[in-house]
Nucleic acid binder design. Structure first.
Lengths: 199, 199
DNA sequence: GCGATTAAACGAAACGGCCCGTTTTCAAGC
DNA sequence: GCTTGAAAACGGGCCGTTTCGTTTAATCGC
């Protein structure tokens, strides 16, 4: 008569069926792409995964938790390493926009931002990923520092935040089809801020 | 005994009761602030406004339409005009963050961004408001051009887009409490891109 | 002018439907 | 036998719509 997992064991001895979990996560991703965040319901995911709702609720306590795990499964975008900061940044943004456009990552990330507006867990996760040197852009800038291309006094977090902001806004306003020239000009502006002597 | 409006005449002879419309718009704003976008339902707005749902549906065909009108009723943020570009930009961002923090505008704008992810009308509106010289930041930059502070070849739209992106991301990640130093440093970076000679 | 007429918007209530999150039941497998 | 999970049913909320009387306010005849 096993109905539910003992809540106390949920995080200890319980292990979920990998096949089933995979099917659910894949279904969640598919629903997100096809119906968008507005159509992302546990019911829809369960239907698509041919799973029962209790199965989903057993392993993911909230919509945000499921969304977060879908996000973490996403393939990462390629981070170029050309040896030149500007090329790395332009290349990264090009890759990122293409990645968001051509895979499900764009839908997933947009939904995560949306969910973060009302769910604390998603909000915290989003804040964590955006933190300075842990971000892809932050790493690119740190590398440039390491090889002496820019001064070590540059505030990587600030520059990374600016570039991430640019990417976010273009994702949220459906402007991922920016041509390379726009990306390049934008990066160039930010770069000049790095290269120019402080006022 | 007239019962309802003929749809064909809806846009001709129809008039809506200003008092009722006001009450609905105010209720919508209040619901948005108190329950957030997730709790923003037509039903909740009607309850709060002591209005019938049909009344709302009669005048606003969608949630997005209602949200847009609430947004348009918002007080505008003060745009400083000190005669110095950098001061204007820093002052504007400070005002904007405070405005978003301390009034309902932050909630309203966040909801508008969220709605734009699934509604074309909201999306188009958002894209329209963000367009270069029509934006507040665009105006500040154009003024600086007009008084010769910066070159006329500066791409106002690009710089305005960067600054708007920064503001958006900080709104969406609940980072509106940035101290003035962070804002000033960010503006300073962008400003250097303007002041420095092109590569 | 002014009261009667009539059109229109109004609040309230109820509808069928969908999805929520939860609980119960029951079949299958390690 | 014990765990797992699929299926079904639950109470509840909101959806968008329709149908009621009722109230407000322009229009028109006198």
């Amino acid at each position: 008569m096993g109905v539910d997992v003992d809540p106390a064991r949920r995080s200890i001895g319980a292990r979920r069926n990998p096949d089933s979990a995979d099917a659910i996560l894949e279904a969640a991703e598919a629903v997100l792409v096809e119906a968008g965040y507005a159509g992302f319901s546990i019911e829809a995911v369960a239907r698509r995964a041919r799973a029962g709702k209790p199965t989903i609720y057993r392993w993911w306590p909230s919509k945000a938790a499921l969304l977060l795990e879908v996000y973490q499964r996403q393939k990462r975008v390629d981070v170029p390493d050309t040896g030149r900061l500007e090329e790395d940044l332009v290349g990264f943004l090009k890759n990122l926009f293409a990645h968001w456009r051509e895979t499900s990552s764009g839908s997933v990330f947009r939904s995560l931002i949306a969910e973060a507006q009302s769910d604390d867990a998603a909000s915290a996760a989003l804040a964590g990923y955006a933190l300075g040197r842990r971000s892809h852009t932050g790493q690119i800038i740190e590398r440039a520092k390491a090889r002496g291309e820019i001064g070590v006094d540059i505030d990587s977090a600030l520059v990374a935040d600016l570039i991430a902001s640019f990417a976010w806004k273009h994702l949220l306003t459906n402007q991922l089809d920016e041509d390379e020239a726009t990306i390049r000009k934008t990066v160039s502006y930010v770069m000049r801020g790095i290269a120019a002597p402080g006022k």
